[in-house]
């Protein structure tokens, strides 16, 4: 069992509950132990930094300090948390005055931070630590024939924190392929979904979401998979809004990568939170899993 400090991020308890549930369901079978930080608080995301750049670093660092006590790599499944926590760590390492001020503030809560926490995205841990070979060897139902558009979004790969190509990443493709599914070519795989501006600037965001859905369908996708909670809600929950606005008929399920892995590992849909997806993945997956099970039994 590889052990990690785990920072779930706020959305895994709410808007991306399917992500939170499916991570808990697949971690054990894949041989990783995620020790959730006790008492963790929101990382602040881009929003906090846009109102107060420096204070935002403090609120992010509270979580880094909690992780440093554990002495483990800090893993988060949320792309926004990933860059917020990583960037806070990098800035502190460069700015000694800020580091001492942050530590002075952390001290009121009996915390301190020395700059020694590697922040890692769950996708990287799955691809590099767990490895696709181990995932493939644990697969019970190969997702043969399932055409999946691997959607990375922006903040998993940009700004470049070095684990995959920022223009044309491959790690999620490899994860999809390790399940027996087909990762279709998806040229827009790391283009923006509209992010949080979907609330205040909905029209603009719907245009971006439509481009992504269109590009995925044009390349033959039966479903989309993503590791990012924000991307998932935009593509999933706003799909009907896109259809309303553009008079289109998209009905493309959007699964978290951990949900897709869970299915291939033979974990039941409810444990993976699949009933919380808005565009129902049922029909597409029934076909594939039905066939997969038969094949497995036959073999």
């Amino acid at each position: 069992m590889k052990r990690y400090a785990y920072y779930p991020g706020c959305s895994t308890e709410s808007t991306a509950i399917g992500l939170g549930l499916s991570i808990k369901a697949v971690a054990g079978p894949l041989g990783i132990e995620l020790e959730e930080l006790e008492d963790w608080t929101c990382c602040g995301s881009v929003q906090y930094g846009s109102l107060d750049e420096l204070e935002a670093i403090l609120v992010a660092t509270r979580n880094l300090a909690l992780a440093e006590k554990k002495g483990l790599d800090l893993v988060t499944p949320c792309s926004s948390c990933f860059i917020t926590l990583t960037s806070a760590g990098l800035q502190l390492r460069k700015n000694h005055l800020l580091m001492s001020q942050v530590n002075e503030a952390l001290a009121v809560a009996n915390l301190e931070y020395h700059g020694n926490v590697p922040v890692r995205h769950l996708t990287e841990v799955l691809a590099s630590d767990v490895t696709t070979e181990v995932i493939a060897s644990n697969v019970k139902y190969r997702l043969n024939g399932l055409k999946v558009a691997p959607y990375y979004g922006c903040q998993l790969v940009r700004p470049d924190y070095g684990f995959d190509d920022p223009d044309f990443p491959r790690s999620l493709d490899r994860l999809v392929e390790s399940l027996g599914a087909e990762a279709i070519p998806f040229p827009l795989k790391s283009r923006c979904c509209g992010g949080t501006l979907v609330i205040p600037e909905e029209d603009m965001a719907l245009g971006l979401i439509r481009k992504l859905l269109d590009n995925a369908l044009e390349n033959g996708a039966q479903c989309i998979t993503t590791p990012c909670p924000l991307c998932q809600i935009n593509l999933d929950a706003y799909q009907s809004r896109v259809n309303n606005k553009f008079k289109t008929h998209y009905n493309l399920p959007v699964l978290f990568i951990t949900q897709l892995i869970g299915l291939a590992l033979g974990i039941d849909a409810v444990s993976l939170g699949l009933n919380t997806n808005i565009v129902s993945p049922g029909r597409v997956l029934d076909d594939i899993l039905g066939a997969g099970q038969e094949a497995s039994h036959g073999a």
Partner: peptide, 23 residues
């Protein structure tokens, strides 16, 4: 179940608020 009605108040919020004040 993706939009809980009530907030999940974490005990960390108190220490967070103290830290922000101090900062």
């Amino acid at each position: 179940r993706r939009m809980p009605l009530r907030p999940h108040k974490t005990s960390g919020r108190r220490s967070l608020a103290r830290m922000v004040k101090k900062f």
